[in-house]
Simulated assay, not measured.
Amino acid sequence: MSNDIDIHEYLNWLEKSIVDEYFNYYEYSDFNNIQPIGSGNFGRVSRAKWKDSDAIFALKSFVNLKLTLKEIVNEIKLQKKLDYHPNILRFYGITKIGCGKN
């Protein structure tokens, strides 16, 4: 039961952060030329172009959101606290892969 409460708490935080513009929400369909970079225990990282621009993003996708939701929220909070550093990828926002896509 406690785990379910935590999951809802973190989902609510993510949704509120998008509404409050703490970070951006991007439509997954706005990304193209998606190419895998690597993978690990929690998921995969892909390289993608955004819309019709030359902007390149690294997209992190997670295998099991329930197991990693707390870690995702904590990582976002830490990234937002850091000042810009050339050796740290900047967090721009979040997207959601539609049903039936991987």
Rank of each mutant, 00 (worst) to 15 (best):
M1T: 02
S2R: 10
S2G: 07
N3R: 15
D4T: 13
I5D: 03
D6N: 06
D6G: 01
I7R: 01
E15A: 11
E15S: 05
K16T: 07
S17Y: 01
S17N: 13
V19D: 11
F23D: 09
F23T: 12
F23L: 05
Y26H: 09
Y28V: 13
S29T: 11
S29Q: 09
D30A: 10
F31M: 04
F31K: 00
F31G: 06
N32Q: 05
N33A: 04
Q35D: 15
I37E: 08
I37F: 10
I37M: 06
I37L: 08
G38A: 03
G38E: 06
G38I: 08
G40V: 00
N41G: 09
G43T: 03
V45N: 01
S46C: 15
R47D: 01
R47G: 03
R47K: 12
A48S: 02
K49M: 03
K49Y: 13
W50I: 06
W50H: 11
K51C: 09
S53Y: 09
S53F: 08
A55Y: 15
F57C: 08
A58R: 07
A58T: 02
L59A: 02
K60I: 03
F62Q: 01
N64D: 15
N64V: 11
L67P: 07
E71I: 03
I72L: 05
I72H: 00
V73D: 01
V73S: 05
E75K: 06
K77G: 04
K77H: 13
L78E: 15
Q79H: 11
K81R: 13
K81M: 12
D83R: 10
Y84N: 04
Y84L: 00
H85E: 03
H85R: 11
H85I: 04
H85A: 12
P86W: 03
N87C: 14
N87L: 13
L89D: 05
L89Y: 10
R90Y: 14
R90C: 14
R90A: 14
F91V: 09
F91L: 12
F91E: 08
Y92I: 12
Y92Q: 13
G93R: 01
G93A: 00
K96T: 14
K96E: 12
I97W: 09
I97Y: 09
G98M: 11
G100F: 09
G100N: 03
K101H: 13
K101N: 15
